[in-house]
Write a protein that binds this DNA or RNA. Structure first.
Lengths: 112, 112
DNA sequence: ACCATATACTTTGTATAACAAAGTATATGG
DNA sequence: CCATATACTTTGTTATACAAAGTATATGGT
């Protein structure tokens, strides 16, 4: 139980925070990485972590993509936004997470 | 992202709640299962989940075991208690979890 | 006494996720 | 011109929760 415990703690929760950020603003992958790193130091992720998550969310129909070319002859970027289904999945999953977080807090903090 | 998301949310956190419960009271495995199921519905686990965790925690020196025979000719039970090292690991890991939980809450609840 | 159920522990195999590490390609600033 | 940043992708590794099954003893009800 070293620092790789952090890797375990992140499992599953990255999905919901990514969906949340994408529900507030359409973003492309690389942008999401920096946004996540800015928003919470403990949720830092690398590209090799984010992109597979995005592909999975897309396969599940929770996000939609769109290639956009900023300027002509510039390299297009792949923009992600959340679908209706994605909002529902995120809401449901977050509710589950809150229940677990509450139980953990109860056990760790008090009521022995 | 179905109900198996719950399985992901549990990753890592079971360690810390198990260590916490064992720090409050020495227990044997089967007892821990029912205690956990009683304490937080969302943290329900089966024996096949708990025992491997206990073996791992023991390998890491975070818990110690002791076989105790309740009555003569009764089947002995394997009691677990936390070591000093276990307390430290739990405290550290819980602190990490709180940091992540805080970041998640910030992203999910507010400050857009 | 019998037997279904509960207790208690163990093992095997599976699915999934985060990550490291590397690669590809374009854009940009000094 | 070229090192660095941007942007996306892929492969292989490791760790964990879980289902499912098995073993063995204990116990309560009829």
């Amino acid at each position: 139980m070293n620092e790789n415990i952090i890797k375990q703690f992140k499992k599953g929760v990255l999905d919901i925070v990514i969906l949340k950020l994408l529900s507030q603003q359409e973003m492309y992958g690389y942008e999401l990485v920096s946004e996540l790193n800015r928003r919470g130091e403990s949720l830092n992720i690398k590209e090799g972590t984010l992109y597979p998550i995005l592909y999975r969310l897309e396969d599940e129909g929770l996000v939609e993509t769109r290639w956009e070319q900023a300027a002509s002859r510039s390299k297009p970027k792949k923009y992600y936004k959340v679908t209706e289904k994605g909002i529902e999945a995120m809401t449901e999953a977050y509710s589950q997470w809150k229940a677990i977080a509450r139980d953990i807090t109860n056990i760790m903090e008090g009521t022995p």
